[in-house]
């Protein structure tokens, strides 16, 4: 059966097309586009993707307004049924604001917007999203954010690390994130939030000038896991 992924677009999302293209390239099936004001998700989804951008102009706090939108109630309900959810950049912020993931994303420690490709260490390779990576592997993925400084209290950070829920860590100084955390998983491993943009690094090696291809295996991991399920 064709892979069914939904990409949610909020007012101010700007990586929704890139996310849809990445999903289509890897799965061969078109991604279903869903608007924030929709109250219901399509049925039988294999994956829900929350893209990057500046939903609602980052009013109040990044991701806070989007977390209250009608579609997010449906996303929270779907996640509770075990539907995998991927949130990238602003999508990660939305997931923390919706309390699907612990912690919060603060303003970058250096106060500046950071837009460059950074080295990440893959910390967890047993999740739905990371099984195609090698443990401890360093990959290069672009970041583009102002509020990417991951914060959680020490107890939460210890729990995340103890449970193997840190998916990616920055392998170089980036935004001041607690324990260099770049991506975290939910307790059941089926929700991933990350600041770096894997959908911007999916081109085959031949055209890798366009951000590289290290993000490709994240989508391949999800596709392989669900295709074999």
């Amino acid at each position: 059966m064709a892979f069914r992924a939904a990409v949610i677009t909020f007012p101010g999302s700007n990586c929704d097309r890139d996310m849809a293209v990445a999903l289509e390239q890897i799965s061969g099936a078109p991604a279903i586009r869903v608007w924030h004001g929709d109250a219901e998700l399509p049925e039988r989804l294999d994956l829900i993707a929350l893209p990057g951008g500046f939903s609602y102009g980052d009013y109040l706090r990044s991701g806070a307004m989007a977390a209250t939108s009608p579609i997010m109630r449906a996303v929270v309900a779907a996640a509770s049924r075990g539907v995998p959810v991927l949130g990238v950049c602003n999508g990660f912020q939305v997931l923390t604001e919706a309390r699907l993931l612990p912690g919060a994303l603060l303003r970058n420690a250096g106060q500046r917007f950071i837009c460059r490709t950074v080295a990440l260490t893959v910390e967890n390779t047993s999740s739905l999203f990371t099984s195609a990576y090698v443990p401890g592997e360093q990959i290069r993925i672009p970041v583009a954010h102002h509020d990417g400084n991951y914060f959680a209290d020490a107890e939460t950070l210890d729990r995340l690390e103890g449970e193997g829920r840190v998916a990616f860590r920055y392998a170089e100084a980036c935004n001041g994130s607690a324990r260099d955390i770049a991506g975290v998983l939910s307790a059941n491993g089926r929700v991933l939030g990350m600041m770096p943009h894997p959908e911007r690094a999916i081109e085959p090696a031949a055209v890798s000038a366009l951000g590289g291809s290290d993000g490709r295996r994240l989508f391949e991991s999800v596709f392989a896991a669900l295709a074999s399920a």
């Binding site: 706090r61 806070a64 912690g103 919060a104």
Partner: peptide, 9 residues
Amino acid sequence: EKLLANTVI
């Protein structure tokens, strides 16, 4: 608690 503040931070 639901919107105006993020009580995590």
